[in-house]
């Protein structure tokens, strides 16, 4: 019976632990302070995006447009500063853009009732197209002198710890506080658990859904700023990559079910660590990018299959319309 209680979160944690121990034992140079920091730094952007995704997924939604919001508003900051605006002005414009984008998504999903998957698919396409057509001159927006000091967000250190890790930790704390200790957080869980019941109970479901997508957009924009600051540019073609799938994997592997209402910040951290450890280990082993992806996919599949054996879904308990 004890086995029954192991959930996906436990499995992933287990795989993570096994992998971590194995890498420590067999990979020279893995378990060093420097490498640990690199590992964390590499996945912190993914982790921050995972937090944004988690907020939406817990509320039984999904946000495919996160990569667009990661690329476009921060890219706009770089572009505006390059064109001569001051950093605060550029930052506020980017924030407003993210805010408007989040509101737009939220309105479509909550009020126009277009499915979240479809809305964010299209709106992400729209935002990326908007950036490409109207905002950026080149695919990669370069760093400019006006941004002096801003790179600290991505490259600086505090007490010897790289800033991205600190930023990720801070974001985790904030989101955890939001989800666990505030009324809107509780509402998000209620909506994710059962939207109709939440609505009947008096939860303002539509405004809360809008709030989820606004938060996701703002966090996504923030992740983009961190990313731009750490690589000194914003490669806007990142929208075309499969990064969004990595984000979803972080969230789902960590144990936040796509059917909503379950999981929290801890799950995002676990998912991020697993992906980070795996990628880091394989990078040390010099596995090719495709090979890394293959291994990543197989490991994920094993985790999901193991979960399905330990927590079987059947035709009686499966939620209708839950894909």
């Amino acid at each position: 019976m004890a086995l029954r209680r192991i959930n996906q979160q436990g499995i992933v944690l287990g795989i993570f632990a096994v992998m971590f121990v194995a890498f420590t034992a067999f990979l020279p140079g893995f378990f060093t302070t420097a490498n640990m920091l690199t590992l964390l730094q590499n996945v912190s952007v993914l982790g921050i995006l995972g937090l944004a995704m988690a907020i939406v997924v817990i509320g039984r939604g999904i946000d495919i447009s996160l990569i667009a919001v990661l690329a476009v508003p921060p890219g706009l900051v770089l572009q505006m500063v390059q064109d001569g605006s001051s950093l605060p002005v550029a930052l506020s414009v980017a924030l407003l853009l993210s805010l408007a984008f989040g509101l737009f998504n939220g309105w479509l999903i909550a009020y126009a009732e277009v499915p979240a998957l479809f809305t964010t698919l299209a709106s992400g396409l729209f935002l990326a197209g908007f950036g490409q057509a109207a905002l950026f001159k080149l695919d990669v927006v370069q760093w400019s002198p006006g941004l002096q000091g801003f790179e600290w967000l991505g490259q600086g250190q505090l007490l010897g710890i790289p800033m991205p890790i600190i930023v990720f930790a801070l974001a985790c704390g904030l989101v955890a506080f939001l989800l666990r200790s505030t009324r809107p957080g509780a509402y998000i869980y209620a909506i994710g658990d059962n939207p109709n019941t939440a609505r009947v109970t008096g939860v303002p479901t539509r405004p809360i859904i809008v709030l989820q997508f606004v938060l996701a957009a703002l966090i996504g924009c923030f992740a983009g700023l961190v990313m731009a600051a750490s690589v000194n540019s914003m490669p806007t073609r990142i929208f075309n990559s499969t990064m969004i799938y990595d984000v979803i994997l972080v969230v789902v592997l960590g144990g936040i079910g796509l059917s909503g209402g379950r999981g929290g910040v801890l799950n995002v951290v676990i998912g991020t660590l697993l992906i980070g450890t795996m990628l880091n280990g394989m990078t040390i082993m010099d596995v090719s990018y495709s090979g890394q992806n293959l291994v990543k996919g197989v490991v994920l599949l094993v985790a999901v299959i193991a979960d399905s054996f330990l927590n079987p879904r059947n035709e009686e308990t499966a939620q209708q319309g839950d894909i």
Binding site: T242, Y245, I248, L249, V252, L258, S290, G291, Q292, N293, L294, K296, G297, V298, L300, L301, V304, I305, S308, F309, P312, R313, N314, A318, D322, I323
Partner: peptide, 19 residues
Amino acid sequence: LRLRAFITTLITLIIFRSA
């Protein structure tokens, strides 16, 4: 095995693509 379609095909997407 009754896995979730979305996450499963997402994973096979990655596996097939890297293959």
